[in-house]
Simulated scan of single mutants.
Amino acid sequence: MAKKYERVLLKLSGEALMGELSYGIDPAIVDSISDEIAKTVKEGLQVAIVVGGGNIFRGIKGAASGMERATADYIGMIATVMNAMTLQDALERKGIATRVQTAIEMQELAEPYIRRRAIRHLEKERVVIFGAGSGNPFFTTDTTAALRAAEINAEVVFKATKVDGIYDSDPKVNPNARRYQTLTYGHVLEKDLRVMDGTAIALCKDNSIPIIVFDISVPGNIYRALVGESLGTLVGGSCEVS
Rank of each mutant, 00 (worst) to 15 (best):
V47W: 01
I56C: 05
E111W: 11
N207M: 08
S217D: 09
K162F: 05
S65N: 09
R99N: 05
P112F: 09
M196S: 07
R99V: 08
A160R: 03
Y185Q: 02
E229N: 02
V81I: 10
R120G: 03
G44T: 04
G44A: 08
A146W: 06
V173N: 08
T161Y: 02
M18D: 03
L91R: 08
L10W: 15
A149H: 07
Y113R: 07
G220A: 01
K172H: 11
G232R: 03
S242A: 11
I29S: 08
K162Y: 10
T40D: 09
V81G: 13
M106S: 13
D192A: 14
V218W: 03
I29E: 15
A2T: 11
V235D: 05
G165W: 07
Q101Y: 06
G133Y: 04
A2L: 08
D206K: 00
D192G: 12
S134H: 12
I96R: 15
P171A: 14
I152C: 10
Q46K: 14
R58F: 07
G19L: 01
D35V: 00
I119V: 15
K205V: 01
A146N: 04
V157R: 11
I212T: 14
K3H: 05
E151F: 14
K61H: 09
G14H: 10
E92R: 03
M106C: 04
S134P: 02
G186M: 07
A2S: 08
L45W: 04
E36Y: 00
V213H: 07
E108K: 15
R224A: 11
T143C: 13
E229Y: 02
K4L: 12
Y5R: 01
K94S: 14
I209S: 02
G76T: 04
Y5C: 06
A160I: 12
L109Y: 13
T199D: 15
K4S: 08
R116V: 02
A110M: 12
V188E: 14
A225W: 07
V235H: 02
N153C: 14
A79W: 12
I211K: 09
I104S: 07
G228H: 01
S169L: 03
E15D: 11
A200Y: 03
V127I: 13
F130D: 09
R148C: 12
T98A: 06
I209T: 03
G59Q: 08
P27S: 03
M67K: 01
G66Y: 07
E108A: 14
L234R: 08
S32Y: 08
K61P: 00
F158C: 05
G76K: 08
S242L: 12
T161A: 06
V227L: 15
E190F: 10
G131Y: 11
G14A: 13
R194N: 11
